[in-house]
Design a protein around this nucleic acid. Structure first.
Lengths: 338, 338
DNA sequence: ATTGATTTTGCAATCGCATGCAACTTTTCT
DNA sequence: AGAAAAGTTGCATGCGATTGCAAAATCAAT
């Protein structure tokens, strides 16, 4: 029942040495046509396939990429995960997924496990790396690239959109739309993405001689954002517009505004998001948002990682520029082109 | 830079044999307190961790579970994936994810790769297994359990909800609600889930002396479901209710009804879904649906799989009963309790 | 036909760990 | 105290491949 076919058995049946079999399955190795044919025949008959783990042991490369992910609830990440997985698959790497606790802590044991599995590289999505972990990965010679999160450490690669610029775009758009009381429900300020978007947004307002009317951390959580929205928009003088730290929260905010507070969007309040998740395009939300070009981000991530694995040791910090995607959730200034 | 610490180095530093080190890290092996202490100290100082791949080679168990998934767009699956991942992680298994083409074909090479990686078991989510593949996995002694999809083959384990019963519930609910023209936008009829739900629904209607007013395959695709809905509800005599094969399509249908056809839900049309994805509870949709208890499904899946890996060779077909979750997208019959 | 250059091939070592076996220690019991 | 039982330990082997090296075979060129 449990039949394992090894290269040795193939070798015997083909009448060649075990090395020959190995070479046949190693691209670029030296095998004559004659032996190749013999090996192929024997391998086929026996249903032989090389054992990737054994190969990994001696070659030192497992062709496994560890992916750490914290939050699949935010619709941006399933999308990213799928694209990452497919892209790596195409390049003949596989993805070992680890789920981390949402906090910055708690990924310690996860990275440890990852190292135990001898992964060739690590991608972190929406997760921060501590210093000691970066240390350990660097020591083990395992490249790390952070997806959609930045870090100061120059040993780390990262791929993000230009979140500061994105924040600015949001500010410009809302001001141009003639809004007077501009609010901000921020992305989690413990994450670079959240901080940078906020930073850009505030800077943008300031440059236009404005100030934020109200501001609160939404923590990148749906429920938390909803509560913040409730409080923020219940007062007598409510904001006439709000820039929300990501689409996932923005939809929650819209729900609260519409269904709990009876407000119209964009007539009473303009809402801006960040990410452009699929949901944002649905007719219910029609969310105007800063698009993160996820496909390009994924390609950049994979390129960077494989580059480092296959030689080039320099980490890269890549910033892709996002773009405003205008829909119907925010008042559209005259003369603004999507 | 690239420092690999092996058990041998630990052994030397601790002044014991390599076997002792190995035993220290093998739960249940025989080590005295004295050596254990020495090994622990040395291992800690060197930052040693056992190489999982090497262990896999000799023990024959990789503690890797292959997960094949086709569709992360349907919000049910990210959720399932996360739960599966976390549960397996807790039991000290890791998940190697593979993305399959959506079709039934095309998973051939994926399973092949999976076998190459010496996974201890396979979980398929929303994917069907061909006969020859089942054959191969059985031959390799690798248990397979299908998540949210059934199969006739008795060699395969599967975990689903009782989709036939679920379909019946939908029928009962709509009839009890006094609907006259009951329609059905079915789940993909190429999948057992889709077929069974439809089957149960039609049977349920028949038992109540009714017939389906209109019916079409939605293919489990948002866009396709939307088109079907457009056609189905544009005619002069439109349905007054529709049971949709899953929530993912149901939200698309609702969007079409509301935003393209200007219909009210549930006043003009009642909509029923299947799954109870998080989205279904959002105020915009308030979707009445047949809940698939995903946590229990996941637990059952993992239990079944690990059971088979760790000894018990019998495949199991598990059917978990779903339950109607009443919200506001369908007219509520009097006396129906949620 | 002979030599030199180039390819192919097999041998054997290696990767890092687990484990059966035999030798040795310690504990338990009479 | 001595014998039997139980617990530890190290040696040596094997898991299934890759790969450096040297021998053998093929090819090219005189």
């Amino acid at each position: 029942m449990n039949e394992k076919v090894t290269s040795l058995q193939v070798a015997e049946r083909a009448g060649v040495s075990q090395s020959a079999v190995s070479r046949y399955f190693t691209p670029g190795a030296s095998v004559s046509k004659a032996t190749a044919a013999k090996v192929q025949k024997a391998a086929e008959e026996l249903g032989y396939r090389p054992n990737v783990l054994a190969r990994a042991m001696v070659s030192g490369r497992s062709r496994i990429i560890g992916l750490i992910i914290a939050d699949l609830k935010n619709q941006f990440y399933p999308l990213a995960l799928e694209l990452l997985g497919r892209e790596l698959q195409e390049r003949d790497y596989q993805v070992l997924v680890f789920f981390a606790a949402n906090s910055t802590e708690g990924i310690e044991p996860v990275v440890q496990k990852l190292l135990d599995y001898q992964v060739d590289g690590i991608i972190t999505a929406s997760v921060a790396m501590s210093n000691s972990l970066t240390e350990r990965c660097a020591a083990a010679g395992i490249p790390v690239v952070m997806f959609n999160r930045g870090q100061d450490d120059p040993r780390l690669s990262s791929v993000t959109t230009d979140n500061v610029a994105g924040g600015r775009m949001a500010a410009n758009f809302l001001v141009a739309g003639g809004h007077e009381r501009i609010a901000h429900i921020a992305g989690w300020q413990g994450a670079t993405t959240g901080r940078d978007r906020t930073l850009g947004f505030l800077d943008g307002l300031r440059d236009l001689g404005r100030e934020v009317f109200a501001m609160e951390d939404g923590m990148y959580q749906r429920e938390h954002a909803a509560e913040v929205a409730r409080a923020m928009f219940s007062g007598a003088e409510r904001p006439d517009s709000v820039f929300v730290g990501n689409d996932y929260m923005a939809t929650a905010v819209m729900d609260v505004l519409r269904f709990e507070l009876g407000l119209s969007i964009p007539e009473d309040v303009s809402v801006l998001g960040y990410d452009d998740v699929p949901l944002a395009a649905w007719p219910t939300y029609q969310l105007t948002t800063i698009r993160q070009p996820v496909t390009r981000m994924v390609t950049a991530t994979v390129d960077t990682l494989l580059d480092r694995i296959e030689g080039n040791p320099e980490p890269k910090q890549i910033k892709i520029t996002g773009a405003l995607k205008i829909r119907a959730s925010a008042r559209k200034p005259k003369g603004f082109t999507s």
